[in-house]
């Protein structure tokens, strides 16, 4: 039995919950077992997970569970895993997943493999593939343990919606929380957070100053992309800290990463080299980033970026 921890945000299942469910149901079929899901806290449509191959979802719906708490979430997930005899617990490698993954494995006496980007079945055994050395290599893991807890980096596997609803089993008991008190949450609204973004437009020192960011925002707007920046730009305060991608900032893996006026230091690449397609715009033909790029444009960004925005506008109008 595989147990998927399906995360929600604002009462809706998150995209990475669907991604995880699709992968879990595929692996379950190959192992001739079943994949079920657990949803913790308020959720409008838990049955929707059925479109991604999950036949049953356990919904723990009590106000004590609406905000994440590591003790309460641990107790719910481990309690259910013991009850159904889960051999594999799958989480997403998100803020919540990072807080929980190791804790769950210790409590469940399971092996733990975090931050994987793929799972496969070979001769009846599960293989776990994990990017290591900040994406510069991959490690193939196996486990001889009866139980495993693993977390999948969001946006790792492709998936699509099918048909059907999952059977929902509601459980409404209150669960004891830890003594950690949540004072407030400040989250930017309106855009997709960087770790989950499929399209990212990022800019660096080549922008010359924060007053020039209008052309970056316009390009991001037309694409529906999330904006990001390099370390020097966030360190000097041109852009907020939460936009910094790279080794010390946020690691991302979008489908498209457009880097504008960023030279491509190795520490920056470590955070973005899992992007599927990289476009680099830089006036310096020797910028190291071109070596890591799929498409390059060597030119003045103040001319190239508005032209690219116009080209996307024409494309949108025609398609």
């Amino acid at each position: 039995m595989i147990l998927v921890f399906a995360e929600t945000k604002d009462g809706k299942l998150k995209k990475n919950a669907f991604e995880l469910s699709s992968l879990a149901s595929k692996i379950a079929a190959e192992l001739s077992t079943q994949a079920v899901a657990v949803v913790v806290g308020a959720c409008d449509q838990p049955q929707e997970i059925g479109k991604y191959g999950i036949s049953k979802v356990f919904h723990y719906d009590n106000s004590s569970l609406n905000d994440f708490d590591d003790y309460a979430y641990r107790d719910v997930i481990i309690g259910l895993a013991e009850e159904i005899g889960a051999h594999l617990i799958l989480l997403s490698h998100t803020a919540i997943g990072k807080a929980l993954c190791g804790r769950l494995s210790v409590r469940y006496k399971a092996d733990c493999i975090s931050a994987i980007n793929g799972l496969s079945v070979e001769s009846g055994q599960i293989k776990y593939i994990k990017p290591v050395f900040s994406g510069k290599a991959f490690a193939h893991y196996s486990s001889s343990a009866e139980r495993v807890v693993a977390s999948l980096i969001p946006n790792s596997v492709s998936f699509s919606a099918g048909e059907g609803n999952a059977e929902v089993e509601n459980r409404s008991d209150a669960v004891e929380r830890s003594a950690v008190e949540i004072i407030k949450r400040d989250v930017i609204s309106g855009t997709v957070p960087l770790p989950e973004a499929e399209l990212v437009v990022s800019a660096g020192r080549g922008m010359k100053g924060p007053e020039n960011w209008g052309i970056v925002d316009e390009l991001a707007d037309i694409l529906g992309a999330t904006t990001a920046c390099s370390r020097p730009v966030s360190d000097t305060g041109w852009r907020p800290h939460h936009e910094h991608v790279g080794q010390t900032g946020i690691a991302i893996r979008p489908n498209l990463y457009i880097a504008i006026g960023i030279s491509g230091a190795i520490q920056h690449l470590a955070g973005v080299n899992n992007s599927k397609v990289i476009v680099v715009i830089n006036k310096d033909a020797e910028a190291p980033f071109f070596k890591a790029a799929d498409y390059g444009v060597c030119g003045d960004l103040f001319e190239v970026v508005p032209k690219l925005t116009e080209a996307f506008k024409r494309f949108k109008a025609e398609n």
Partner: peptide
Amino acid sequence: DIEGGIEVLKL
């Protein structure tokens, strides 16, 4: 740090 922002906790 959480996705797209921060959570402030007291413990």
